[in-house]
C-alpha cells in the first residue's frame, strides 16, 4: 500500500490539481455559455498552441534554431486540403496523410541537410525553406489556388458547428501535448539536456546528436503538419498568407513570450496572442508594432518569458517555507531563453 500511496502522491501535487481543473473547465466551457466567436478563437488557440509547443520542442528544448515551422504547417495544410478537394476524400483520412507527408518531406528536405550544420546556418536554411514555399504554391496554382488561396475545403463534418470544431481541436491539443510530454521526459528529452549540459561527455556516453535531432525534427514536423491539416479543415479555406511574416512572428512570439524551454509557456503564449490578435483586429497595423515591442522587451528584460515570472512569483511565495534550494522555482526562474530545461515546470 505504501508503494501505491507513493505513486499516487505526485498526482495530487498542487500543480497537477490545477492542471486537472483547467482541463475540466476547458471540457465544460461550451456548456458554460461561451459564445460562438469565443469557441472559434479557442479552437484556433488549441491549433496554435500545438504549433508553438512543437516549435519550442526543436528550439527551446533541443536547441535546434529552426525558423521554418510555419513551412511545416503549410505543407500539412495544403497536402490535406488538396487531397480532400481533388480526390474527394474525407478529411479524416487526408489529415494523417498530410501529417505523414510533412514529416517525410521535412525530414528528408530539411532535416538531413540542416542537422549537419550548426547554429545560424540551421536558422537561415529553415527560414529560406519556408520562404520558398509561396513560390511553390504559386507554381502549382492549378491545385493550390495560387496567391488567392484555396476555398471550399471539405470540413471535418457536414455543417461543422463551432462547438464541434472546439472539441476536435481540444482533443487534438490533448493528444499532442501528451505526446510532447513523452518526448520531453523520454529519451530524446534526456539526450538534449545532456548535449546542452556537456556535449563531449554526452557524445562519449553514446548520445548521437544527429539521430536525436532528426527524431525531434520528424516528431515536430508530424504534429505541426497535422495542426496545419486540422486548421485547413476547421476553417475550410487557406492561403499563402499563413507563410507571411506576421503569422510567423505571431507563432514565434507565442512560445517565446510564454517561456522557451517550458511545457506550459507556449500554451499560455498561444492563448494570449491568439485572443489578443482577434480582439485587436480593429487596431490594424498597430498589432505588428506591439508584437515587435513585446519581442524586444521580452528578450531584453525577461528572457524566460511568462513562465519566468510565474517561477519568480512561486519562488517568492514558497521560499520562506521551503528554502532557497528548491529547483522547482529558483533555478527555473533563472533560466535564459532556449536553455530548455524543464525545471521551470518543476521536475
Amino acid at each position: 500500500m505504501r508503494g501505491a500511496g507513493r505513486r499516487l502522491m505526485p498526482l495530487l501535487r498542487p500543480r497537477n490539481l490545477v492542471l486537472a481543473s483547467v482541463g475540466a473547465l476547458l471540457v465544460a466551457w461550451p456548456y458554460l455559455g461561451a459564445d460562438r466567436f469565443v469557441l472559434h478563437v479557442a479552437a484556433l488557440t488549441f491549433v496554435w498552441a500545438v504549433v508553438a509547443s512543437y516549435w519550442n520542442l526543436t528550439n527551446g528544448f533541443a536547441g535546434i534554431t529552426s525558423l521554418g515551422n510555419m513551412g511545416f504547417f503549410a505543407i500539412g495544410a495544403y497536402t490535406s486540403a488538396v487531397l480532400a478537394k481533388e480526390l474527394d476524400l474525407t478529411p479524416w483520412a487526408t489529415m494523417p496523410v498530410g501529417a505523414l507527408a510533412t514529416m517525410a518531406l521535412v525530414t528528408v528536405l530539411v532535416g538531413l541537410p540542416v542537422l549537419r550544420l550548426r547554429g545560424i546556418y540551421i536558422a537561415l536554411l529553415t527560414l529560406a525553406f519556408a520562404d520558398a514555399l509561396p513560390s511553390v504554391i504559386t507554381i502549382f496554382r492549378a491545385w493550390t489556388g495560387g496567391g488567392i488561396g484555396l476555398l471550399g475545403i471539405p470540413e471535418l463534418l457536414e455543417d461543422l458547428e463551432k462547438w464541434q470544431a472546439y472539441y476536435f481541436a481540444l482533443a487534438f491539443f490533448a493528444v499532442a501535448q501528451a505526446a510532447l510530454v513523452l518526448v520531453v521526459r523520454g529519451a530524446p528529452g534526456l539526450a538534449f539536456v545532456a548535449l546542452r549540459d556537456s556535449e563531449p561527455f554526452a557524445q562519449a556516453l553514446g548520445v548521437d546528436r544527429f539521430k536525436e535531432g532528426l527524431r525531434v525534427f520528424a516528431i515536430s514536423a508530424f504534429f505541426t503538419g497535422f495542426a496545419g491539416a486540422l486548421y485547413a479543415h476547421l476553417l475550410g479555406q487557406i492561403s499563402p498568407a499563413m507563410l507571411g511574416i506576421e503569422q510567423f512572428l505571431m507563432v514565434i512570439s507565442m512560445w517565446m513570450l510564454g517561456g522557451a524551454g517550458t511545457l506550459l509557456g507556449p500554451v499560455l503564449g498561444a492563448a494570449i496572442i491568439t485572443f489578443g490578435n482577434e480582439y485587436l483586429r480593429v487596431a490594424g497595423s498597430l498589432r505588428l508594432g506591439l508584437l515587435g515591442l513585446a519581442i524586444v522587451i521580452t528578450v531584453l528584460f525577461f528572457p524566460g518569458g511568462i513562465m519566468q515570472l510565474v517561477g519568480r512569483a512561486r519562488g517568492f511565495l514558497t521560499r520562506p517555507r521551503r528554502g532557497g534550494s528548491d529547483p522547482d522555482t529558483v533555478d527555473g526562474a533563472a533560466l535564459p531563453v532556449g536553455s530548455g530545461s524543464e525545471t521551470g515546470e518543476g521536475r
Binding site: T65, A123, L286, L288, G289, L291, T298, G338
Partner: peptide, 19 residues
Amino acid sequence: EWGFGTLLFTLGLAILAEY
C-alpha cells in the same frame, strides 16, 4: 544563450522598423 537572444532581438527590431 547569446546566439538565440541576439537573433530574437534583431528580429524584434526588424518588426519595429517595418511598423
